[in-house]
Design a protein around this nucleic acid. Structure first.
Lengths: 102, 102
DNA sequence: TCAATATATCAATGTTTATTTATATATTTA
DNA sequence: TAAATATATAAATAAACATTGATATATTGA
């Protein structure tokens, strides 16, 4: 069986996905590019908080950035991200189901 | 496009995967069940640290537990876990490659 | 029952992280 | 150039988290 590679990188990526608000932002960006203020409005989060989370998402390369005048647009950088989140979701569901059947 | 479900659960699972030593322990347990002391020896980590991480892995249902006399054996609870970690690994590799090609 | 072995837990410590409030920076228009 | 808009950043704060050294708990055999 082949093992996953660089563990620090894996841990770093997982950490980037380990906050609910950040996940909400990331998933919102899976629906196409959005400006910071649009995210702020849509998710009812504070602007500095959104900026902070976007900065983390930039660091982990999970988002792409594009400036247009005063607006900065962000979008999810890779469709595999949603697939992985779905797989995690299925895993969680499965683990919970298996636990309650004991 | 269908969105992943319960975000707090997703964040919780991601957090459980967000530490390198914990990943090392989890992956080691993907090769069959092991006692705490075996993990301690194999990974050269302190016993309390291993116990602490195992406790977190138990909480997130990522491991199964079985006692035999003084020994407690742990193993990975679901093969999907490794698949997800591999997918994350591939994602990381891909994102890094895409960045360096800009 | 006691001693030995295995492992969980406790307490302390330092580091990391999310959030808020305030301010700095960047872009555009009048 | 100044004002308005968009957004990044700074600083403070509280909470969460990983690790270590010490101790408590569980199991077994003599």
């Amino acid at each position: 069986m082949e093992q996953p590679g660089h563990l620090p990188t894996l841990a770093f990526l997982a950490k980037s996905l380990a906050d609910e608000n950040r996940l909400r932002i990331l998933l919102s960006l899976g629906n196409g590019k959005k400006s910071v203020s649009a995210i702020v409005q849509e998710l009812q989060l504070s602007q500095p908080l959104v900026s902070h989370h976007l900065k983390e998402l930039r660091r982990s390369l999970l988002v792409r950035v594009e400036r247009q005048g005063p607006f900065i647009y962000y979008e999810m950088s890779d469709p595999r991200i949603v697939e992985i989140l779905k797989a995690l979701d299925n895993l969680a569901t499965g683990l919970l189901a298996a636990r309650t059947t004991f």
